[in-house]
Design a protein around this nucleic acid. Structure first.
Length: 301
DNA sequence: GCGTCCAGGTCTACC
DNA sequence: GGTAGACCTGGACGC
């Protein structure tokens, strides 16, 4: 008999805009199909307990989370889902700022703007490194390999993202030959060692009181994390006042939408979103992903 | 089927 | 601080 926990939602929350906010839903241990609005995820083993595989569905403006584990896991599961879907993130100021904006008003109407994230910063950090300098297909391959080859299975057989310890237990050659991480292999091995040994604790970035520019410097100290990766991580940490996380795809979308298809310097992109102040990185993302949700921009859960 | 070229960010060495 | 070249993979392309 599966356990179940129900989670109430903030008024401006959209399930599909949050889960589908960026590509994370397409990477294990997430599973999601827009045509079947149910998200599954596997929480890592914790405190000697095995991974927990959860299924999340929207039922009458509430999230119903079912999982095959002891009901004593209710607290952890509910807290984890709130974190992943950013249910406690205050976006009222952002929505007020964009509500009358011709480009972004749709996002406040739709309840978009919450960017899906993993249960912890460690997982987001490794996945972000796997997005750099390669196609999305290769990112999927690397992350799938990590989960399949180093992740621990939950009761239903689905595997969690590997822990720092599990990743520290293998050599750089394993990442090169088995994960197909290429030149990122020594970066992943070094990162896993640092986190596993306690030398680096990415979770502290969530509550860091450092100014965003300083925190960005900290992130860039991790090998494999450059400008784009640091800015992407800052967004997942809830900091939207860093850089704009401009990669080739974001740039090409901007050129199409705002520059008659012609390439331009990043300075022009930055100027375009300046008016959104400390929300600029979130504004960029909402703007260039608008077409993903064009079929229905109502707050349809 | 094979070889070549290219795109994709980051690192390091160098200026 | 800015720049060039290397890193590695997989897809596209030509033969």
């Amino acid at each position: 008999m599966p356990s179940e926990v129900t989670i109430s939602l903030p008024p401006n929350f959209s399930f599909r805009h949050t889960v589908g906010s960026h590509g994370w839903y397409d990477l294990p241990p997430f599973e999601y199909s827009p045509s079947r609005p149910e998200m599954t995820y596997v929480f890592m083993p914790a405190a000697g307990r095995p991974p927990v595989s959860v299924s999340v569905k929207l039922v009458r403006r509430r999230l119903v989370v079912t999982y095959s584990a002891d009901p004593a896991e209710n607290g952890r599961v509910a807290k984890g889902i709130r974190h992943i879907l950013r249910l406690d993130e205050p976006l009222d100021e952002f929505y007020r700022l964009i509500s009358s904006d011709p480009q972004l008003g749709w996002a406040s109407t739709a309840g978009a703007g919450r960017l899906l994230r993993s249960e912890n910063v460690w997982e987001d950090l490794v996945k972000t490194i796997c997005t750099t300098n390669c196609s999305w297909a290769l990112t999927k391959k690397m992350v799938s390999n990590l989960v399949q080859k180093l992740g621990e299975p939950a009761a239903d057989g689905r595997k969690a993202f590997p822990t720092p310890r599990a990743m520290a237990d293998v050599e750089a050659d394993f990442y090169r030959n088995e994960i197909r991480a290429g030149y990122r292999s020594p970066y992943l091995a070094e990162l896993a060692q640092a986190v596993s040994s306690g030398q680096l604790d990415p979770e502290t970035w969530l509550t860091s009181e450092l100014p965003t520019a300083e925190l960005r410097k900290q992130l860039k100290k991790v090998k494999g994390v450059g400008d784009y990766a640091a800015d992407n991580l800052l967004k997942l940490l809830g900091r939207y006042d860093g850089g704009l996380a401009l990669d080739s795809w974001v740039r090409s979308q901007f050129y199409k939408k705002h520059n008659r298809g012609k390439a331009c310097e990043d300075k022009k992109v930055i100027r375009f979103y300046e008016k959104f102040g400390r929300w600029r990185a979130l504004a960029v993302w909402c703007d260039i992903t608008e077409h993903w949700f064009n079929q229905d921009v109502s707050r349809s859960a």
